[in-house]
């Protein structure tokens, strides 16, 4: 696996782990752990979206000229996931475990089919198109936010 795929796939796995921790805490009724767990999950997931939307996708689009294709769909699905994250956050504040678990079930499916498409199709395309600047791109994505 080359660098871009590897880096972002590991980031997916990291977010999956945080997702499960928060959801397991909600299922136990441990709202304190759930709240801190959810915040970490939400922060890191949004950060992952930013890495893609602000760094990877624009570079890919300008190199290949493809703006209406795969990156367009991925941005659209990021939008859907932001929606569900907001609904989960609301459920968490209300301590409504039914609503949280219904939304988290939805997010999990959305997230995993999205990740599958990225990992199996889009990232390999990026690896091929951006091989010459892979290291620099990963460095930029890794840099802390200003």
């Amino acid at each position: 696996m080359s660098t871009i795929s590897q880096y972002l796939t590991e980031d997916h796995e990291h977010c999956d782990a945080l997702f499960a921790e928060a959801e397991n805490a909600v299922a136990r009724g441990d709202w304190t752990t759930a709240a801190s767990g959810f915040r970490r999950f939400e922060d890191d997931t949004l950060r992952h979206f930013e890495r893609e939307e602000e760094i990877l996708f624009p570079t890919f689009e300008s190199r290949t000229g493809m703006t209406g294709g795969p990156t367009f769909v991925m941005r659209q699905e990021h939008g859907q996931m932001r929606e569900v994250l907001a609904a989960m956050s609301g459920a968490l504040e209300r301590h409504d475990s039914g609503a949280y678990l219904g939304q988290s079930e939805t997010l999990l499916m959305l997230m995993r089919q999205h990740n599958l498409k990225e990992e199996q199709i889009l990232y390999p395309m990026c690896d091929r198109a951006l091989a010459d600047q892979a290291d620099a791109l990963v460095d930029r994505m890794e840099k802390p936010r200003p």
Binding site: Q76, Q80, E83, V84, A86, A87, G90, G98, A99, L101, G102, Q103, E105, T106, M109, L110, Q113
Partner: peptide, 24 residues
């Protein structure tokens, strides 16, 4: 339930809390 949610959200652009989630 996932496809029903996914297409409903994509078609209507509804906020996530206002349409039935998968478990609904």
């Amino acid at each position: 339930p996932f496809l029903a949610w996914f297409h409903l959200q994509a078609q209507t652009g509804a906020r996530a809390g206002t349409i039935p989630n998968m478990k609904e």
